[in-house]
Design a protein around this nucleic acid. Structure first.
Lengths: 215, 215
DNA sequence: CACTTGACAGCACATGTGTTTGCTTGCTAT
DNA sequence: ATAGCAAGCAAACACATGTGCTGTCAAGTG
C-alpha cells in the first residue's frame, strides 16, 4: 500500500519518526534510533528506505555524518519563531509610546510568523495592541495586534502610523506625498482619504503586519 | 578576558560557532568540527569548554550521542512555531476546497504564532489565502491569510466561513441563529447583515485568526 | 618555595553509526 | 516455470566521534 506521494507505509513511518524525534530531542536520529524504535530488523533496511526518501526529496542527508538526516523545510531556517516586543496600546486619541523609552527587555513579547517577516527585517520592529475601532477603516479591529517598524519617513503607498499634530491623534493609513500636501488613504477603498499638510504629519512607523486572534 | 555572562572568549566563540553551524547545516556540530574550524589544538579542550558551557546553562548535551549538542532555545522548547497547512485560496465565488481531500502532507505550510493558538487547539486548523476583496466587510483584505478550524456547527457570535447554497458563494461573517432564520453579520458594523434560512447555510469552518503581511 | 587551580595539549580507546556485501522472499511479466 | 525486481534481512566492516587519561604551563596563594 502506498500513499498519494509514492511513499511506502514504512517510509511514511520513518519520515514521521524523524520529525517527531527532532521535536522531542532537538537533534536528528541515528539510523539505529530509527531501527530500534520502529522495530525494524536491520539497519540496512533503514538505510534502504532512507535512500528512497532522499530520492523522493523528502529528506536531506549528509553522507557519512552521524545524525546528518535533516528535513528540507526545517533544515536551514531554525524552527524558532521570532519575537518582537509588545510595547503597549494604540488608540486614536493618544500618541504612540516611544519605542526608545520603553524597557524592551521587560516588555511582553509577541510571536511573529516567519512568513510575515524575515529575521533581518525584524530589526526595529515592535508590536502594539489596538484598542477601540478607530482603525476600522484600515481593516484593523479592536484587539488586533499591529506590527510596526520604527521609521520617520515613508514611501508612497506605505501603510504608516501617522500622528496628526493639530488633531493630536494617531491613525493608520496609506501614505501619499502629493506635492505640498499629504494624502492619508484608508485601506478600505470605500472610505474617504484625509488631506493635510506635511508639517501636520509625523510618521511614527510603518505597518508591516497585522495579527488577529478570534479564539 | 570574560564577557558579561562569565564566558571566556573561547567559550563565546564556541557558542557562536554551534549556533552558526546549525543554521548552516541543519544539524549540530561534532566536537571535531568545532576543534578543526576554530583551530583548537585538541578535542579535549573543546570537551572542557563544552562542559563549562553546559554548567553555565548555555548549551544542552546528550552524553555519548554524536552531535548531541543543542542550544536551549531551539531544543525541545516550545518556542518552535506551529505550522498549519495552507490548503488554497478563498474567493467569494467558489466553495472552499475540502480539507479532507487535500493532501495535507504535500501542502504548503504557514507558521502560526503561539499567541494566536495553542498546539492543542491547532488540530483541524488550516489556512487559506484570501483572493479579492469580497471579505472586506469582515475586515479581511486581499492577500490576507485566514486560519480556519474545520467544523460544521457554530455558536452565536462565532466568525465562520459560511457557504450560501443558493447563491453558491462563500463568505466570512459572524453567525447568529435567530429562531428559524440565520443572521450573518459583517464584522464591520457599518455594513448590513444577511438574513437567510438555515438550510441555505453550510458552515465550512470557524475563523480563528487572520494574518496580514504588509511587507 | 610548594601547592593548587584553570586552561590547554596530545593521544589512545571504546563505542556510536553509516555503509557494504550476500542472502532470502514475494510478486509480476514474459 | 523462470527471470527480474522491489523489499527485507543479518552480519561484518570501517570510519566518525565522544571520553578518559597523562602532561604542561602560567597565575595565584600561603
Amino acid at each position: 500500500m502506498r500513499s498519494a506521494d509514492g511513499l511506502s507505509v514504512r517510509q511514511e513511518k520513518i519520515l514521521h519518526y524523524i520529525e517527531e524525534f527532532f521535536e522531542k530531542h532537538g537533534y536528528w536520529p541515528a539510523i539505529r534510533d530509527i531501527q530500534t524504535d520502529l522495530k525494524i530488523s536491520s539497519t540496512s533496511v533503514v538505510a534502504y528506505n532512507l535512500k528512497a526518501l532522499q530520492d523522493k526529496g523528502k529528506i536531506n542527508r549528509q553522507g557519512k555524518v552521524s545524525r546528518g538526516i535533516t528535513l528540507p523545510r526545517t533544515a536551514p531556517a531554525a524552527l524558532v519563531s521570532f519575537q518582537v516586543p509588545l510595547l503597549g496600546t494604540i488608540t486614536a486619541g493618544q500618541p504612540l509610546p516611544d519605542p526608545e523609552q520603553v524597557d524592551a527587555a521587560g516588555a511582553e513579547k509577541v510571536d511573529v510568523p516567519q512568513d510575515l517577516a524575515s529575521a533581518e527585517k525584524l530589526k526595529d520592529v515592535y508590536a502594539l495592541r489596538v484598542r477601540g475601532q478607530s482603525m476600522i477603516d484600515a481593516l484593523i479591529d479592536d484587539g488586533d495586534i499591529v506590527l510596526l517598524r520604527r521609521q520617520e519617513t515613508a514611501n508612497n503607498g506605505d501603510m504608516v502610523a501617522a500622528m496628526l499634530v493639530e488633531e493630536n491623534a494617531v491613525t493608520l493609513k496609506k501614505f501619499y506625498h502629493e506635492g505640498l500636501r499629504i494624502r492619508l488613504q484608508p485601506a478600505n477603498r470605500t472610505m474617504e482619504p484625509i488631506f493635510t499638510t506635511s508639517d501636520n504629519v509625523r510618521i511614527q512607523g510603518r505597518v508591516v503586519g497585522v495579527l488577529r486572534s478570534l479564539f
